[in-house]
Design a protein around this nucleic acid. Structure first.
Lengths: 240, 240
DNA sequence: CATGACACGTGAGAC
DNA sequence: TGTCTCACGTGTCAT
């Protein structure tokens, strides 16, 4: 508060303060009363020299204000430099405004989080019943370079057989699907394969059904084989 | 500029304006001159009623100022809401300040970008010379839940042989390395395998050497085999 | 001209 | 105590 008074005084009497010391009003409702009473006090204008008693007090207040001003500027620069860094990391030019930039950042972090967890987390404990699930997801928007392709997560659980893997590879090859990650586990003669595959640009969401059907026919082929030798083995987990 | 004058006038004469209309100085060096000349003009204080000529002009200015104020508030809220969203997405409490939060965001986006590109991009064109490279990287900081494990990217290029894959699997199994992704390509009797493997918590950076040595012994085993049948085949690219 | 985005200086509060 | 962070209202510039 006194700082403002100092500013007013210095402005009217030719300040030694390097920066210009302007004098115009500034609405800040929450801090009104003190200044308002000051403004309406008879001593407000003109200011008498006798009121300036402690010069060192002024100096301290002025330097404090100056420090505050500069610290605040540094703080702003720090924040903005991080925002600029984010601008280079995301697909956007340097003119995108802060709010939109942060919106993009939020979206991007969410996507990457989902994508990595999806790639990283596989559940490969075989169940007793045959299962096929095919989930599709667009892994990061098309403008990001890394992804933009459709990602399928296919999980099939069925009776184990030796030529299952080659058959799966054949299916994926014929559908032009690129395997990002595959994990297989067998337990008690049953197997679960979890595949993370990326479609090329020809594919659309509809390819989900093609993949699902192809895998279904795989399992049916497996069913036609002999399913007599249901051996119980220890949890043999193998990763390819 | 006129808005400030209005504020001053209204403050001194009992404003109808809902918010309090304070009067104290406000330093803004870049916009000083006009206001300074206004302050020093004889008509500045006291203000005569004759100077207020156009009431509608006042109203327009006031509403404009009000709109401006509210719009700015909305803008702030928009930015801050995104920052809050980011606070929930990142491992940090709601008390972390903006700059630190944004620093974390920058770091996180970089990490995720590197991790996904590392997992997604494999180069599997075999070369004519034997090669082993093992790179290690911590995929996302340990506090993020998803990763925290050491990730190795191993690339080995050598003469093709039928039992290379089982041998590799055996090596990875013995080292307790979990395969996140594997890709193999053969061309002209030579093969390149690129593996992205994750170490469990027992491992440290030193495991890089174990992996490297194990793969080296693999290649040497391959060398001892017959390397006579150097057949030239078309680019047979197979993904597992 | 209105509308929006930004930097600025400032008071308040936390610590 | 001073130091840091934040919200605020404002001037300015661009669209």
């Amino acid at each position: 508060m006194e700082n403002s008074e100092l500013y007013q005084f210095l402005a009217r009497n030719g300040s030694f303060f390097n920066a210009a010391a302007p004098c115009y009003s500034y609405g800040l409702p929450s801090a009104t009363t003190a200044m308002q009473s000051f403004c309406s006090s008879s001593s407000y204008y003109p200011l008498e020299v006798s009121e300036i008693t402690d010069t060192t007090q002024q100096d301290r207040a002025l330097t404090a204000l100056k420090n505050h001003k500069e610290a605040e500027k540094r703080r702003r620069e720090r924040i903005n430099s991080h925002l600029d860094k984010l601008r280079t990391l995301l697909p956007c030019n340097s003119k995108t405004d802060k709010a939109s930039l942060l919106a993009k950042v939020v979206q991007r972090v969410k996507e990457l989080k989902q994508q990595t967890s999806e790639i990283t987390e596989l559940e490969t404990v075989p169940s007793e019943t045959d299962e096929i699930t095919v989930l599709s997801t667009t892994a990061s928007g098309s403008e990001y370079g890394v992804g933009g392709r459709l990602i399928f997560k296919a999980s099939l659980c069925c009776e184990d057989r030796s030529d299952l893997i080659p058959d799966i590879i054949e299916v994926l090859k014929s559908l032009h699907l690129k395997t990002l990650k595959a994990e297989m586990a067998t337990l008690g003669g049953r197997t679960r394969n979890v595949l993370i595959v990326a479609a090329d640009k020809d594919h659309s969401i509809e390819s989900t059904h093609f993949l699902q059907n192809a895998l279904k026919s795989l399992i049916e082929r497996s069913d036609s084989c002999d399913r007599s030798k249901r051996r119980r083995v220890i949890d043999r987990k193998m990763m390819v």
